[in-house]
Structure formats: structure tokens, C-alpha cells
């Protein structure tokens, strides 16, 4: 049974149909990947699913409940969390505080309790601090907890965003190019991390350019080109699909690849 169901989603920017009638489903405990050439509409699709953009067609359902058009903070409460392709960390906060912000939904103390520093508010902050520290350790950033986020490397910030999304307690996690700018060792670590996250029964949707990573950890793959879905299936099906090869290499390149293979 799929937890996240997306059907017929579309949006136009000016005259350009950036995403056109795209649908997919994602199941708990699995990694569903979205691939496609640059400009295929992958990140736009993420922005539609997570409520940053308002779709002009289609629907999004979480566990059968229609959530189309809900603002991002309501979707977060419905169990959706995400990371961003062009990093959206909080640079003026420490790494730990960044992740603590992910605990916002679990925090119940009101504004006045915060102003007067009441024991309930303090205890809650202490709990969030522990949860955040655990998430940092899990993503390999434990030693950097007190460091200002602005001082972290690109690869570390990518993982910081994952830690921040994880502590929300999300059931659906959208990861936008988590391995971009990472070296081979870091990519391997991200691979293991994503595997473990899915292993907890969370629904992971992944946008990634590193094909080896995608082929290794995905249960299903959705391929986009120019805003449209051109293929969907298991990794081995996608690898052999002529339309996919064509989209990536062009018609001419695909013919050459076939010739080289033969």
C-alpha cells in the first residue's frame, strides 16, 4: 500500500509547462527515485508535492487523504519533510540549533512560557537538544554540533538538512540531491544513511544524479524529461529502457551506445 500518491500534477511558468501530468506512488520502507536530465522538472515536482508551489492540475494524497494545495507547514504536520537542492540551512544558527528547529512540531510550550523561561519550556528545549544531538551523531556530524552552520562544508550541510528533516519524525522524506558535491566516501555514507532511513519504514523519495547510487538503493524509479514522465519501473527495467537512454544521451548518442554494446 503506497503512503504517498501523486497523480496528474502540473504547473506552468509563463508559457512553459514545467511539469505536465506527472504521477507516481511511493511505498513505506522503500526508496522511490526521480531521475532525468537537467531541467526535466524534478525539483519543480518536489516543490509541488511539498506545497512550495501550488499545482494548477492534479492531486497529492498522503495515506489516502487529499492534501493538494495545503501550505508547507500543514504538509509537515501530515508527516512530510524534505531537503533542498540549493541548501536552505539556517547559517546564523549552530548545527545543533538547526536540527533543534526540526523539533518544532513536537514542542508544545507557548510564547509566554518561552518569554518567562518557565520550567516546561526549558525541559522541552532540553529534550529537543537531546533529539537533535542524536540525529547529528547519526548523520556523522556529532563533533560539529556547536559549530555555526555557515562554517560547515557543502557535504556536511547536505547531511545537516537530512538530520533536520529526520527529527521532525516524518513518515515521508523527500531528498533533493543529497549526494551532490560529495566525494566517493561521503556518497557511500549517504547511501548507507538513506538505506537505514527507509529501513525504519519511512517512505523516501529521492532526486539524484549519481546513477550508481540510484540503481543501488531504489525500489522504483520515475524518469522525467521536459516535464513529462517517460518511464517508471524497477532499476533493471529503467536501465534497459530505450527512451531513457535517448533522453540522457540524445538519439544519436543512444545509437552509438547500442553499437558499442553490440
Amino acid at each position: 500500500m503506497s503512503l504517498l500518491e501523486v497523480s496528474g500534477l502540473g504547473i506552468s511558468f509563463g508559457g512553459l509547462r514545467a511539469v505536465d501530468g506527472v504521477g507516481f506512488t511511493a511505498r513505506p520502507g522503500e526508496v522511490t527515485s526521480i531521475i532525468g536530465p537537467n531541467g526535466a522538472g524534478k525539483t519543480t515536482l518536489f516543490n509541488l508535492v511539498s506545497g512550495v508551489y501550488i499545482a494548477d492540475a492534479g492531486a497529492v494524497r498522503i495515506a489516502g487523504r487529499e492534501v493538494t494545495g495545503l501550505p508547507p507547514h500543514r504538509l509537515a504536520r501530515a508527516g512530510m519533510a524534505r531537503t533542498f537542492q540549493n541548501l536552505r540551512v539556517f547559517p546564523q544558527m549552530t548545527a545543533l540549533e538547526n536540527v533543534m528547529t526540526g523539533c518544532h512540531m513536537a514542542e508544545r510550550a507557548g510564547l509566554l512560557a518561552g518569554l518567562f523561561g518557565l520550567p516546561g519550556s526549558r525541559a522541552e528545549t532540553a529534550r529537543s537538544r537531546e533529539a537533535a544531538a542524536a540525529a547529528l551523531t547519526r548523520t556523522g556530524l556529532g563533533a560539529l554540533a556547536g559549530r555555526e552552520a555557515a562554517a560547515l562544508s557543502y557535504g556536511q550541510l547536505k547531511r545537516l538538512e537530512i538530520a533536520r528533516a529526520l527529527v521532525t519524525g516524518c513518515s515521508i522524506l523527500l531528498l533533493d540531491e543529497p549526494a551532490a558535491g560529495c566525494n566517493a566516501v561521503e556518497t557511500r555514507e549517504i547511501d548507507d544513511l538513506i538505506h537505514a532511513i527507509a529501513g525504519e519504514g519511512r517512505t523516501v523519495v529521492l532526486i539524484e544524479h549519481d546513477m550508481r547510487l540510484v540503481m543501488r538503493i531504489s525500489a522504483r524509479i520515475l524518469v522525467l524529461d521536459q516535464g513529462r514522465r517517460i518511464a517508471e519501473g524497477a532499476p533493471e527495467e529503467i536501465r534497459e529502457n530505450p527512451r531513457v537512454i535517448e533522453a540522457y544521451l540524445g538519439a544519436h548518442g543512444a545509437a552509438e551506445a547500442r553499437a558499442a554494446h553490440a
Partner: peptide
Amino acid sequence: RAFRAIHDSDVAAASLG
């Protein structure tokens, strides 16, 4: 923390609820 998160990125803050 929510205030300071908005300062740096309101999109990211909203994505955290």
C-alpha cells in the same frame, strides 16, 4: 528558534512545520 529560522529561510522553516 522558529523566529531565527524564518530569518534565515522562511521556506525551510515552513517545511519543518
